[in-house]
Design a protein around this nucleic acid. Structure first.
Lengths: 187, 187
DNA sequence: AGCTGTCTTCTAACCGGTTGGTTAGAAGCT
DNA sequence: AGCTTCTAACCAACCGGTTAGAAGACAGCT
């Protein structure tokens, strides 16, 4: 275990950044806190990543890459795909939080190429499946994907007031997601 | 037009706060900017609202009140209700942005009573409609409401990368919302 | 009408702590 | 030695929040 390891330090910083940004967003994140959580130094962040914003970009890209790799689309089983995505969101709450912060705080910036490609691939796959009669045609491919992703994210978007108002114990969340996507495709 | 009008000043500050918080969130909002946009003074904010956080609370409560009043639920026509909500979100983008900031930055705090009541009323109405056979029973009332609200918000949640990847021109957004809710209730 | 005192509404200036970012140089490795 | 990796200390700008007092409104008095 080398105490001096540039790559390991970079990873630790990135990991701490991921947690910090997921919790507090870009404006709310504190660079010192990230450095401390990584057992490192603030200057290292600027050495490895350049700026707070670039550090966020790196963290976001990492999590997008991991999620895309872990949860590939399956056009023959969109309900199952949505359920798997929902499980990933539940097991890694940072994914959706980071994506949301990015949408809110970085809307003006140039879109992340990796994410654009991932969306394009999925839309193409859905379009092809529609051509082959595997998927229904009542929504254009982009719209269908949007709806499926939105349903997969349903449990990440419940406001705190909802939890205070309704008892959600005993709800099989993934099943609700899969079932609702099934209904979306039917008819 | 009285140049000295406490109530008018309060309203201007609240309105400016609404815009600022919707754009930048709580951590990103700047109190000076709000005061300047309202043509007022920073000290007035602390006089009328107490603190930055309390100012956010006031802005959030205002927008919840307006939205609840403007878009009542109609259990006999959930697709139409969802479509109306979607239109409201589209015409007033601050609504969903503020709600999202609140969820991300204020999850730990006590839920807003007004919002809790609004959710409870809607859940009760859905439960009653299910008892009367007006609505299907394949989801518990709270789950059904969650799904409907999530579908109504579908166009507020598209990440920037989506817009860059897919052409959404010509999509009748409200119709998609109404149609998807219809499918959710069918079967 | 004018004068005066009092209360409300408003503002400029200020404050201490914090923030993202920098620097100069120490310490380890080969 | 020479390069990479690391750190403590520093900095100017900024931020939420405060303060002391100015300026308008209004009532009562003359």
């Amino acid at each position: 275990m080398p105490p001096r390891d540039a790559e390991a330090t970079r990873r630790r910083l990135l990991d701490a950044a991921l947690r910090e940004f997921a919790e507090f967003g870009i404006a709310g994140a504190r660079v010192d806190r990230i450095a401390e959580a990584a057992g490192s130094n603030k200057a290292q962040i600027y050495h490895y990543f350049g700026s707070k914003d670039q550090l966020f970009d790196a963290a976001f890209e990492t999590i997008v890459r991991d999620t895309v790799a872990d949860t590939p689309i399956d056009v023959h089983d969109l309900p199952g795909y949505a359920a798997r995505l929902a499980r990933r969101y539940e097991e890694h709450p940072q994914v959706m939080r980071l994506a949301t912060w990015q949408r809110l705080e970085r809307a003006a910036d140039a879109p992340v190429p990796l994410a654009v490609k991932s969306v394009r691939d999925k839309v193409d796959a859905i379009a092809r499946a529609q051509d082959e009669g595997v998927l229904p045609r009542h929504y254009p491919p982009g719209v269908l994907l949007t709806l499926v992703l939105q349903l997969a994210a349903v449990w990440t978007a419940v406001n705190p007031e909802f939890g205070a108002a309704v008892d959600m114990e005993g709800v099989r969340r993934e099943d609700v997601v899969a079932d609702s996507v099934r209904r979306l495709l039917a008819g």
